[in-house]
Amino acid sequence: MSAVTTVLRRELAGYFATPVAYVFIIIFLVMSGVFTFYLGSFFERGIADLDPFFRFHPWLYLFLVPAISMRLWAEERKSGTIELLLTLPISTFQAVMGKYLAAWLFLGIALALTFPVWITVNYLGSPDNGAILAAYLGSWLMAGGFLAIGSCLSAVNRNQVVAFILSVVVCFGFLLSGLPMITNLFSGWAPQALLDAVSSLSFLSHYADISRGVVDFRDLLYFVLVAGFWLAANVIVLEQKKAD
């Protein structure tokens, strides 16, 4: 466990030693504000909740999370530090978890910094703060799902741009897998069970209730499982191809 925290601390400090953290946080806050107040019509709705805020998070994460995750392993490969890291007495699994948790924590920090919107809604009305807290948690878990996908794909090669594009595409697939656009690819030839399985993978449908503050344990479990699956894949990818 201590090896995980060692990696985690180094990574997290690394974010704040470079402009990455500050640029990301500012863009994240500006974008979430734009989505909430313009596209989400926060004021016009006249309802004291944060649905307009949370509703757009999947789309925000779609581009911003791969921007964080693309460097996780591709950069280590490019600079050769992967060789340093993986010859320390740290297992591949510990290294993957350390880096992942640091990035996830960082996303958590960015998410927490949206607190003014929570203050605003409390000032304007009396929202269900429990629901808001649950939605924050759900949003963070979903970010973790995106992040695990991005982390795994970042380990596939040493080019960060390739990692970014692959991650956006795969995340987009996961986001929309419940919509006809994806299910139509399967309907007609695939058995109904597979069709159901694919559409149940959708981030959107699992997140839809969470963003309204309705937290089903199964939705949370879904994101944890997605993250677990991709992180396991991440470890395997690294073990299989360390050198290039």
């Binding site: 180094r10 400090a13 690394g14 030693a17 470079t18 600079s79 050769g80 530090t81 060789e83 340093l84 010859t87």
Partner: peptide, 14 residues
């Protein structure tokens, strides 16, 4: 073991 990899890589931002 102590190991100095080829090119002496280290984390540049630290």
């Amino acid at each position: 073991m102590g190991y100095l990899p080829e090119g002496a890589p280290s984390y540049g931002e630290m």
